[in-house]
Computed example of a mutant assay.
Amino acid sequence: MNLTLQKGIDPNSGETIWLMLNQDYEVVEPIQRYLSFLSGCKSPNTVEAYGYDFKAWWKFLHCKHLNWKNVQLSDLEDFAYWLRVGDTLNVTSLQGAEAKRLERSINRAITAISTFYEYHIASKTVDFKQFERFFMPIGISRTRFLQGIAKSKPMRKKLVKLKEPKSFPGCLNNEQVETLANACKRLRDKLIILMLNDTGMRKGELLGLCHEDVGDFTDNSIKVVQRVNPNGARAKGQERVIPVPSKLLQIYNDYLIYEYPNVESDYIFVNIWEGEVGAPMNPKVLNTMFNRLAKKTGIRVYPHLFRHTYATRLLKAGMSADRVRHLMGHASVQTTLDIYSHVINDGELDEIVKAEEQEN
């Protein structure tokens, strides 16, 4: 079965949406319902990635002559292998074959399929008992992905998951950050470098910043707020307040005085020299800026690298992993531990594990 993932624009909100169409160009209703739900809480890029995972799942079901409402845990395991080695189904082991996809990519697909069924369980499209074996109860979740749709239930751990090789993308040192900032001829670009370095924000969170999110010199902080932005930027993580140095606020003020265009705009980072002046910067413009800086300085740099730099700096300075989790906007401290375990001392790691075991 060949499905098509089609990009579109919501005429009411102007936001990017994704449509899943079958060979007759009809909407695939069970997938589309979930994609529409995701559009309200995930970035367009995440929704797109999940859409391709659903295409693969539907193709797998078609090859095995399965109905999406009647699958077993073993089918999910076979799907993981199918993704790993390609379109062959006469398999029983996850070992001994050349990988076609990385473990991380396969685990994302499994997450997409698992939450797809979790959504339909909450919506009562399918029977909970039919799919509860997809998960293992391990405690009560404080914040749930489907909060507002389903009542609070025991948090569930995926039973199908490939072990991913641990790799840390690295981070920048102070000299490299200074080199990148000095290479910027424009205050806006320099502010972007220093803002990412001093806050650890995601790219979407940065481009969604409004003037009202920045405190004054008596309140050295910046708020990360979830809102609908015309440039498609989205705050993926939790809303939070991040303390910042007063020097950063001074550069922000200089930017407003000497470079910000004479237009009314709620957004901090806007078009000044190209495009619609005063419109919020598009993520593609930010990517172009970083590509230019990388060529100019010889430093391999991209926005997310500052996020790793920020977290590593805080952890090495002795800040607790739970506090870093909050500042980074991670939903769970486990995410912080998984990414930055190389800079968290064993004693604190043991304490966190014990605390989570007691909660559960």
Rank of each mutant, 00 (worst) to 15 (best):
N345V: 10
D346L: 13
V160R: 03
M201P: 00
V214P: 10
R313S: 10
S152L: 07
P169I: 07
K7R: 12
M281L: 15
R108A: 02
I140R: 11
L207V: 14
M1E: 06
K64H: 07
Q147T: 13
V160K: 09
V91G: 05
H65E: 15
Y340I: 12
I344N: 11
W68S: 02
T312L: 10
I110P: 00
G40I: 13
T218F: 08
V85F: 07
L327Y: 00
V28N: 00
L286V: 00
V324R: 02
K247R: 14
Q238I: 14
P245I: 15
I251Y: 07
L196P: 00
E178D: 14
P283N: 08
L38Q: 13
K316F: 03
L5H: 04
Q147I: 09
V241A: 05
G298F: 07
L249D: 04
D266C: 04
Y310A: 10
L61N: 05
E359Q: 10
A321I: 15
K158Q: 05
T312E: 06
Y252W: 01
L162D: 07
F217V: 11
D346F: 05
Q238G: 07
R133G: 09
A56H: 06
I352L: 15
I113N: 01
R307W: 04
C41L: 12
L35C: 01
E48F: 10
S246K: 08
M319F: 11
D216T: 08
S152K: 04
M195C: 14
A49C: 06
G40A: 07
L94K: 14
G8L: 12
L5A: 09
S74L: 14
L172A: 08
T4W: 04
V244H: 04
V228W: 01
V228Y: 00
P230V: 10
W18V: 07
E348R: 14
E351D: 14
F168M: 06
D254A: 04
L73E: 14
K153N: 11
N22W: 00
L196I: 00
R33T: 02
Y340V: 06
H120I: 07
N197V: 01
I9F: 01
F135W: 12
I9S: 05
C63H: 11
E132D: 13
E178P: 01
K59I: 01
K153V: 03
A294W: 03
E274M: 03
V263N: 06
Q334L: 12
K247A: 13
S265R: 03
Q130Y: 00
G204R: 12
E357C: 02
D213K: 01
R300H: 08
Y258D: 15
K190V: 01
H326Y: 13
L73F: 12
E276Q: 15
D10I: 11
F128V: 10
S114V: 10
R144W: 05
G215L: 11
G8E: 11
A294G: 01
E351P: 00
W82G: 00
